[in-house]
Design a protein around this nucleic acid. Structure first.
Lengths: 247, 247
DNA sequence: TTCGAGACTCTGATATATCAGTTGTCATGG
DNA sequence: CCATGACAACTGATATATCAGAGTCTCGAA
């Protein structure tokens, strides 16, 4: 037992280390400077920590208490979150949080697929071989790390980060801030979806995902945009099925 | 002279009438209910009425005076406009409005092209023949209406609305609110670009644009997605060139 | 079932605090 | 004596907190 828990810890650590390089991708800014940004970040965190549940309606006062931010910055953040589609402000009757449904899943994956299908062609053609190799090594290392292990919460987060990092790198290759912002937005929808549907990671699932990544990367390494695009389409179709809980 | 101004007026009227059916597409809501929405709308209007100039930096107080809205709702609106990329809020040093440059043009048209290329395939395959016919008739009517005329300001607006209506209908066919919102956002960038680059409509230009629309629609009527996509790509390439002022 | 009162909630306004940018002055070096 | 640099106070703008107002939902009673 000791042995097993030890290896599990090692695997988790390995995942942490692997995902470390992706950390900078997440923080586009040096850090939140206004309370509005803090409120926004706290809201997202609270959402993904399940401290506020999707689909619920709650008041601004509730959020002030939960997030521990003043009212005005919270209002600013709520307005932004509304334009992003994560909630709806019903005047004088509360904040309605978005509840992921099948329509939302479809919309999110459709948008992601459209953007990334365009990006993968560029990526396959112009991405530096070094970057492709790096991502490949990382995916392979993940497979080794999770092989036959239970995935801890921290490990799941690390896998999340690696998965997102891969996709974001692909999209980043278009060098288009508009698209990156949109993609990031779609990604937070995606996180919300997986969260709500009690989506749990398992080692075989992670392995399957990483193998799909490797398929895509292999095509990119061969500079074969068509195959890369096809592999990406397969990846998205399967990811959507997984998100829908038909994995 | 009388005769000419008379026909010009007629042409303008014709454009107004033609664009009328597209009006409902613009207002997604029944109307602004909160002052924040008013502030947002006023800002956009002021931008496109050139009452505030792109690239300038101004203070919240200035905007309160110009837009004639209270401070708090304005702040809400500014926060949204910042996430949309139309401005940057510099803490305690003013609001920097986005200035369209070549990078922005490229980014906007790239995003629009990616989204619409995906949409046109659906459109070609599933759009109702009646709708395609309607759009075709409209484009043809525009050509007749502007033929050899000077384009008035009202006429230009009408053409704008028709052009946007066509593209929006195509995108709407995906029935994906996320994509529609993103597209709408990109469109307001597009408007900003055309505005800044002193982009003026001329009759031959409108005619060329409408002919490109007709090419696309013809392919859609034949249910030929590949040709439609190709025609759309040509349209976007030319539209970008036009926006860059190389028309 | 319907109507009314009350409480609760969001919205908009105002005052205060904090912070970035600027300008002026003083000291030091040439 | 003049020029240049740094430092400090000031100005103006934004951020935050608090408060009043208006609308809506709910609960209870007729």
């Amino acid at each position: 037992m000791d042995d097993r828990s030890h290896t599990a810890a090692t695997a988790s650590d390995a995942l942490e280390v692997l995902s470390a390089p992706y950390a900078p991708l997440r923080e586009t800014e040096t850090g939140p400077r206004s309370l509005s940004d803090v409120a926004y970040a706290r809201f997202i965190d609270a959402l993904f920590d399940r401290r506020i549940t999707p689909g619920a309606t709650l008041s601004q006062a509730d959020l002030v208490r939960i997030l521990d931010v003043p009212l005005a910055p919270l209002r600013d953040a709520l307005r932004v979150l509304q334009t992003e589609g994560l909630l709806t402000i019903h005047a004088r009757s509360g904040i309605a949080l978005a509840k992921p449904d099948f329509g939302m899943i479809r919309n999110t994956y459709q948008l992601r697929a459209i953007l990334e299908r365009a990006a993968i062609r560029s990526f396959a053609e112009i991405a530096e071989i070094g970057l492709i190799g790096e991502l490949t090594d990382c995916a392979e290392a993940v497979i080794v790390a999770v092989q036959g292990q239970e995935i801890s919460a921290a490990g799941a987060q690390a896998v999340e980060r690696i998965d997102f990092g891969f996709h974001m790198r692909v999209v980043a290759c278009l060098q288009n801030p508009l698209i990156q912002t949109t993609y990031r937005q779609a990604h937070s929808f995606d996180r919300l979806i997986r969260l709500d549907r009690a989506f749990r990671l398992s080692a075989p699932l992670v392995v399957r995902t990483m193998i799909e990544h490797l398929d895509i990367l292999a095509a990119c390494a061969r500079r074969d945009a068509n195959v890369a695009e096809a592999a990406l389409e397969v990846h998205f179709a399967r990811a959507m099925q997984r998100a829908m809980g038909c994995a």
